[in-house]
Design a binder for these strands. Structure first.
Lengths: 180, 180
DNA sequence: ACTTCCATGTAAGTAGTTACATGATTGC
DNA sequence: GCAATCATGTAACTACTTACATGGAAGT
C-alpha cells in the first residue's frame, strides 16, 4: 500500500483535493495562482491524471452538473489521504530542476559585447520584477483567506526569493557596466 | 537568416563549440560540470542535435579518430557564429522554469504534523548544501582556467543563490519549530 | 585481468505542451 | 446579442530520460 510511484501532478491533485478544491477546472485555476511558480500543470496532465487516481482508488468522483453544465467533483478517499500523508512524511525532496535562459545566455556571453552582457543581466532583473509583481498580486488576493498557513509561508518564500534575484541580477548588471 | 527556432540545447551546443569544446562527449562532460545547474542535456538530446545543426549548416563536423577509437569533432561555421551572436544579442530571457518538490510538499504540509514540516524545511536546506558543495568543487576546479570571464560570474551567481536558499530554508525551519 | 574512461549512437518509453472541439452559464 | 467564464476532454506533437549496445584506450 501507498507505494509512491505517483507523478508530481498526482500529488498536486491529492494536495488540492485536501484543500477542498474539487474539480479539474478549479485545480487548474489554483495551480496557476500558486504551485505553478514551482510546479506547473496543464489540462492535458490534470484530466488524465484524475481518471488514473480514481481508477487507483485514491480519489472518488461524482457527476455534479450545475444546471445543464456538466461538472465532475472529486474527493479524497481514505487511501488517497494516506498516500498524501505518506508523501508529506517522506523527507525526500531531491527534485530541484531549473531551466533558466538568462543564466544560459550570460554563461556564454563572453562572445557578446559588454553592453549586451549588461543588457542581459538587466532583462533578467526585470523578469524577476514581473514574477514578483505576480506574486504580490497573489499576496493581496490571499489576504482574505483565514489562516493560510503553509501556503502563506511558501508564498513569502517565493517573494523573498524573487526579491533576492532582482537585487542580485541588478548587482551583476552594475558589475558588468563597471569593468570595461 | 538566423531565424531563431533553435532549441535551448542547440544554443548550448553552439555556445560550447564557441568555447573550443569539439565533441559530443566533451559537450556532455562540460554541461554536467556547468550549465546543468540551470539547463541540463542528455546524450539522447546532444547527438541528434549535432546532426541537425550540421544539416542546417551551423556547425561543421569531421571524423577525427584517436588511434582506433572513433571520434567526431565539430566547429562553428560563420552562420553558426552569427546565430549564436544573434541569440546573445536578443534580451528575451523569459524562460525561467522551476520544478521544486520541497516547495510543493511544504505548500501542502498543513496536513502534516509540525515536526514533519520542520523536517521538510531542514531537508530542503540540506539539499542546497549539497548543491553548494557541488558548485564549490567546480569553483576549485575552475581556479586554473585563465580568465574564466562570464562563466565565473555565473558560477558566483549560483554559489550566492544556493547560499541564500540554505539560509532561507534554515530560517523557515526555525520559524516552523517556534510556533507550536 | 580488470576497471574506468573515451566515444558514439539509438530505441523505447515517459512527460509535457498546445491547440482544438464542445457546449452551458453569466454578466454586460 | 456578445464576450467572458465555467467545464471537460483529447489528439498531435515536442521534449526528455533511461537504458542499452558497441568498442577502443589507458591505468592499475
Amino acid at each position: 500500500m501507498s507505494a509512491n510511484n505517483l507523478s508530481p501532478i498526482g500529488h498536486v491533485i491529492l494536495g488540492m483535493l485536501s484543500l477542498g478544491i474539487r474539480t479539474g477546472y478549479d485545480i487548474k485555476q489554483s495551480v496557476d495562482r500558486s504551485t505553478r511558480f514551482f510546479l506547473a500543470a496543464s489540462y492535458g496532465q490534470i484530466y488524465p491524471e484524475l481518471k488514473k487516481l480514481e481508477d487507483a482508488g485514491l480519489i472518488r468522483g461524482e457527476d455534479d452538473p450545475q444546471g445543464g453544465r456538466q461538472r465532475r467533483a472529486y474527493d479524497l478517499t481514505a487511501e488517497g489521504r494516506a498516500v498524501l500523508d505518506g508523501w508529506l512524511a517522506d523527507t525526500d525532496v531531491s527534485t530541484y530542476e531549473l531551466r533558466d535562459l538568462a543564466l544560459l545566455k550570460l554563461f556564454f556571453s563572453d562572445a557578446a559585447r559588454p553592453d549586451q552582457r549588461a543588457a542581459l543581466a538587466r532583462a533578467a532583473a526585470e523578469r524577476h520584477e514581473r514574477m514578483l509583481a505576480a506574486l504580490e498580486e497573489v499576496e493581496a488576493w490571499v489576504g482574505d483567506v483565514p489562516d493560510p498557513g503553509m501556503r502563506f509561508e511558501v508564498l513569502k518564500f517565493g517573494l523573498d526569493c524573487h526579491r533576492w534575484y532582482v537585487q542580485r541580477f541588478k548587482q551583476m548588471e552594475q558589475d558588468l557596466k563597471e569593468d570595461r
